[in-house]
Amino acid sequence: MTLTHPAYGQLRTVTPTASVLLANNPNQMTLQGTNTWILRAPGRSDCVVIDPGPKDREHSEAVARETDGNIALTLITHHHHDHTGGIDRLTKLTGTTVRAMEPEHLRGSVTPLTDGEIIEAAGLRITVLATPGHTTDSVSFVLDDAVLTGDTVLGSGTTVLESRDGALGDYLASMDRLLAVAPGRALLPAHGPDHPEAEPVLRYYIQHRQERLEQVRAALRELGPNAKPLQVVAKVYADVDKKLWPAARSSVKAQLAYLRSQQN
């Protein structure tokens, strides 16, 4: 029987080179859980792992088992714990080298990932694409037939932006970069289901972000230009579970900074 999302603890084939192992860590922020991607070129026994997942012994052991411990390289999309918590356990089990944007997550390497870098490992050619916005260190990985987007683009819903100034501008630029490489490629996100075509998902993300911006503008017209982020959240996200309001506040702060920067 062909597996479908979500399939906890079972290796599910998605493309000729990409399979996914879903961690059993579902919550409101991780959706059904964290996707650990296992990339393997046809005919190869070694592989590349994208995001070891959370600090979860069962998940780390499943990744080691499904790869036979033959991991040429592990790559990290960004620093959040549900993606990096499993690094040390997987390293202990398999001896894998780990590379990331942030030096603290490097194992067996002293070289952080760089934008535009081309990685050749396990018979694969992987291009590193810096896609900040969700976090400053967010990167996506481009394969011949797919793009792995981390938390920059999810399989369902939309991502949370950092609250820092410049986050939304960075994020919109990241969307444009991803859209440029999307044609002909599948979307393999770090949370939620995969999609056979990346381009429609990216266009939805861009449209949604513009709609949210207009909603924030409307809220400011009603509340006044100096409205606090949480006041705007109460207007724009009134239909969203209040447990998600802290995350929404982060995105609203980024949107407010973006709109106010445009006025200067």
Results as ranks from 00 to 15, higher is better:
residue 236 V to F: 03
residue 4 T to Y: 04
residue 56 D to R: 02
residue 136 T to G: 05
residue 188 L to E: 01
residue 208 H to S: 13
residue 152 T to C: 13
residue 194 D to G: 01
residue 140 S to R: 00
residue 33 G to T: 00
residue 39 L to S: 06
residue 228 K to L: 14
residue 144 D to Q: 05
residue 184 G to Q: 06
residue 161 L to A: 06
residue 27 N to T: 04
residue 107 R to L: 10
residue 90 L to D: 04
residue 138 S to F: 11
residue 10 Q to C: 03
residue 224 G to L: 11
residue 21 L to F: 01
residue 26 P to S: 02
residue 119 I to N: 00
residue 119 I to R: 00
residue 68 D to E: 15
residue 80 H to L: 08
residue 262 Q to W: 08
residue 222 E to D: 12
residue 103 P to F: 04
residue 6 P to N: 09
residue 76 I to T: 10
residue 256 L to R: 05
residue 138 S to P: 15
residue 10 Q to A: 12
residue 41 A to G: 07
residue 178 L to C: 03
residue 180 A to D: 14
residue 258 Y to R: 01
residue 30 T to A: 02
residue 121 A to C: 08
residue 121 A to H: 00
residue 170 D to Y: 04
residue 93 L to M: 08
residue 93 L to R: 02
residue 186 A to W: 08
residue 223 L to E: 06
residue 240 V to Q: 06
residue 81 H to D: 12
residue 6 P to I: 04
residue 256 L to P: 12
residue 128 V to D: 02
residue 168 L to R: 00
residue 256 L to Q: 06
residue 9 G to F: 00
residue 232 V to E: 05
residue 147 V to D: 04
residue 48 V to C: 09
residue 201 V to P: 15
residue 43 G to E: 06
residue 246 P to C: 05
residue 207 Q to P: 14
residue 135 T to E: 10
residue 58 E to M: 08
residue 122 A to F: 00
